[in-house]
Write a protein that binds this DNA or RNA. Structure first.
Lengths: 343, 343
DNA sequence: GTGAAAGCGCTAACAT
DNA sequence: ATGTTAGCGCTTTCAC
């Protein structure tokens, strides 16, 4: 039999005061004799008192918990988001309930319900379903995370700055002497694809380049999708060095495997630039040069936005966090060699 | 202004019954007229009633929440553990608070305290500190996870079956025509190293092989550690095919990079077997053949053991989950070729 | 079969 | 400055 946890009454009794005095002392507020407060603190220490968050939440209407619903906790990017959110939440003394929806709208809905029952003070969600049905009925302050947030107006959201990321990547390619990269992108149905291509177009126009001749190849956002797309590229007639910008690190790594499969080598024959910044990119050979999304910062920022939402402060609106380039070696440096072409 | 969440009283009023009747109906218990119960259920549906877990927890003394403290949520293995625990917990209708200690004992202690304050019903912990100081004062049912559990007696724990895993790996090596693999293991200070080597010795004895001549190389449990260890091996005089069994996938991948660095190739010149089953192992070239720890099962099983612990049922004691081999191509098949030796 | 009432641990309004 | 009291939402006796 486990013995009862000490309550504030135990503390009060031991200090020889009433429970409200004990509460005041513990809260560190005013109207308390320093000597009394000392006695209470000592008593609390002595009995090993820990405030009961359930009871506090009940009185205050604040559970001190936040929810985070992401599509896949085993995906390194989302794990980073979770860690960032976790740390930020811990700093302000609240707990984070992390749920992985595994891309299943049903599971997502269940998790949202669980959060509501747990009386979390708010939630951060990357919605997998295309409708906000669950969410507008959610009845809780919430913040959206990731690119899907674009679909919904009037909702605070935090994501990465695709425009800046693409600029970073394309400028780097140019600096290394590459031009007109082949774009390996996701399937037409995905919003992320559109955003990526839009960013590329915008950048080209800004740099006075015609985006039209850019070769665009579709694929699933997976290793296999990247592999197949790359094989397609390599099997087209072409000469010279091939440069590829993949919209996703998994595809980039798949592309790298395809290059090797065709007896070519990276970066000698083919240069590859990825996008995401997953740790696996460091384990390929050569290491994958990529644009890293700031997963941790996104998570941390989402918690901050959520707090503003909870406190009823003016909304942040959409926040886009800057990405950074990780140079690892999958890009050839052609800047001092004669120009090459992709055909 | 967000409007008040409906309580059981709202439901009772709408159904025209008292709150205790409403509670009974919702609980699905006995002593209730089917017709009344129907009315209550309808009313609950209509007002969008969601039980308040804080209040329930307060009355029942059960918060309906469990804690999970792991060293690194961004590590794929631990993420799998978290997912397994998460899923299992969701199945029985409890929430899981996941905390990442980032290998920091201080952070771990803070998380443990947060769990206690949140009044979780129990916790699953992979302790980073060598002492159980925090834990025996923890004052909550808990289950240990991972190999560090070995240090503590009288505590339920769940981990992977190293003995079975090593047997699996070594038998596979033999089947592929390899013998006397070089062992790349962790630093002497780590308990996991001892367990791994013990398992190898035990297996050799069982198969009537002398384990003494096995070459053992130390390194940190990291990519770099594996790389350095492998370079050491390759720089020793040797001939023929080299076979390596790394105690950890990160080291195995590091070893693979080292092989390429020396102008050799895997699996033609060097065969590599890993241990862990991290997803990155699929992205190397060749893919890493490895023994996968059942992270998800471990998480799920830990939740079950924790429940037993909470319910006061007879303890499980130590549970070791079986591992499985993932064959990807980093091992040469020498079984039909003449014998090779490692010197 | 149903309702009234107590109480879980805490905070805040009110009284002293 | 400190004590008393009510009540957050729920479950669980105990009456009827």
């Amino acid at each position: 039999m486990r013995k009862r946890r000490p309550t504030i009454i135990d503390v009060a009794d031991r200090a020889g005061v009433s429970k409200s005095t004990a509460a005041r002392a513990l809260a560190g507020g005013e109207n308390i004799l320093p000597e009394t407060r000392g006695r209470v603190l000592t008593a609390a220490q002595a009995v090993g008192y820990e405030p009961n968050h359930l009871a506090v939440g009940m009185r205050s209407g604040r559970s001190g918990m936040l929810g985070l619903v992401i599509p896949d906790i085993a995906n390194p990017f989302w794990a980073e988001v979770a860690r960032g959110a976790q740390d930020r939440a811990a700093e302000v003394g609240v707990s984070l309930l992390v749920f992985s929806s595994d891309w299943d709208p049903q599971k997502e809905e269940n998790h949202l319900r669980a959060l509501r029952r747990a009386r979390v003070d708010g939630a951060i969600v990357n919605p997998v379903s295309d409708t906000l049905d669950d969410l507008d009925r959610f009845g809780l302050p919430f913040v959206l995370i990731g690119s899907s947030a674009e679909r919904f107006a009037d909702v605070s959201s935090v994501g990465s700055n695709i425009t800046q990321a693409v600029t970073l990547g394309l400028d780097h390619l140019v600096a290394k002497g590459h031009q007109a990269p082949v774009l390996i992108v996701g399937p037409k149905s995905r919003l992320a694809r559109t955003r990526f291509l839009n960013a590329v177009n915008r950048h080209c126009i800004e740099r006075d380049v015609d985006p039209a001749p850019l070769l665009i190849v579709d694929g699933e956002y997976t290793l296999e999708g990247g592999r197949e797309a790359m094989l397609q590229v390599l099997d087209r007639p072409h000469f010279g060095h091939v440069c590829v910008f993949a919209a996703n690190d998994m595809m980039a790594i798949g592309a790298m495997l395809a290059v090797r499969e065709r007896g070519l080598s990276c970066p000698e024959d083919v240069s590859i630039l990825g996008f995401d910044g997953i740790p696996s990119g460091a384990f390929t050979f050569p290491g994958l040069t990529t644009i890293a999304k700031p997963g941790r910062d996104i998570g941390a920022r989402a918690v901050e936005s959520l707090f503003d939402e909870i406190e009823g402060r003016p909304e942040h609106g959409r926040v886009y966090m800057p990405c950074r380039l990780i140079d690892r070696g999958s890009l050839a440096d052609l800047s001092r060699e004669p120009r090459q072409m992709v055909g």
